[in-house]
Nucleic acid binder design. Structure first.
Length: 263
DNA sequence: ATGGCCAATATGATTGGA
């Protein structure tokens, strides 16, 4: 079972790249972020033609998350608990059945939070508190559970080429990192870090300032695994070569392989 | 000198991203 996450920065601008990458990596489940369209505008036929079931939680112009799955969805639920007034499309949860039992997957797009001296940062921190509460509840189910997406969190200095450049940024400020640690301290495993100690494990390079050319990247897209998923962890990786393609997203896909029969 | 981009919008300037 291969599960991937990718912030595509507009699904409609990235369709060609997505189809090329799906053919190459052949994931069973894909968590997408920043689709930047309403549900009706999502090009679902392109993915259904490849055998994927499609679930979309879209919004006009910004944000928007989606799930592609070769296994049928048993349940799909948009939105993160804890604030009924939150209208931003950043969270989509689904349950699928495998030969050996259920698998729970979330595609999330955690708020950026910049600039930090504004309500944008308080929204980010509250959103993270809600995510911690949600995860605590789901972990009680003791299921294989993958919480994947664009976290907009640089967990440690080793996750940035130039950590000093990020010290005052919402992605790296201590309250942000504290909450990410609170999340992993619940018992969730950062899949990429579980299989590699290396630097250069970046998932985002800014379009500006020649960041890609200088490999001035950060690792902010993560797959967190429940104990029942982490016990089956076989591999994890980052498809950084996709950043080199024409019309790239500023993020690249990240994937995990679990020893779970997919079909 | 610490820069340079990209996407969506009742668009041609503004907002958001990170």
């Amino acid at each position: 079972m291969r599960i991937a996450t990718w912030n595509v920065n507009s699904i409609r601008q990235r369709l060609d790249n997505m189809l090329a990458w799906l053919k190459e990596r052949d994931p069973d489940i894909v968590c997408l972020q920043e689709i930047k369209c309403v549900n009706e505008a999502f090009p679902r036929e392109a993915f259904e033609g490849l055998g994927y079931n499609v679930a979309v939680h879209g919004q006009k112009a910004f944000n928007g998350v989606a799930l592609l799955s070769k296994l049928p969805f048993d349940e799909v639920a948009p939105g993160l608990i804890g604030d009924d007034g939150d209208v931003q499309a950043r969270f989509l949860e689904a349950l699928v059945s495998t030969k050996t039992g259920v698998l729970r997957v979330v595609s999330l797009y955690l708020p950026n939070g910049n600039p930090p001296d504004t309500e944008k940062y308080t929204y980010k921190l509250k959103w993270m508190d809600r995510l911690i509460a949600f995860s605590r509840e789901r972990l009680k189910l003791e299921e294989p559970f993958v919480l994947a997406g664009d976290y907009n969190v640089i967990p440690t200095a080793a996750d940035a080429r130039n950590p000093a450049a990020w010290t005052k940024d919402a992605l790296f400020l201590p309250p942000t990192r504290e909450r990410f640690r609170a999340l992993t301290n619940l018992g969730l495993t950062d899949a990429v870090r579980a299989v590699s100690d290396g630097r250069d494990l970046y998932t985002f390079w800014d379009y500006q300032a020649g960041a890609w050319a200088k490999d001035d990247g950060i690792r902010i897209d993560h797959l967190l695994l429940s104990p029942q998923a982490a016990d089956r962890l076989a591999d994890a990786g980052i498809d950084r070569h996709v950043r080199e393609w024409d019309k790239p997203s500023d993020h690249v896909p990240v994937y995990v392989d679990l020893d779970i029969e997919s079909r």
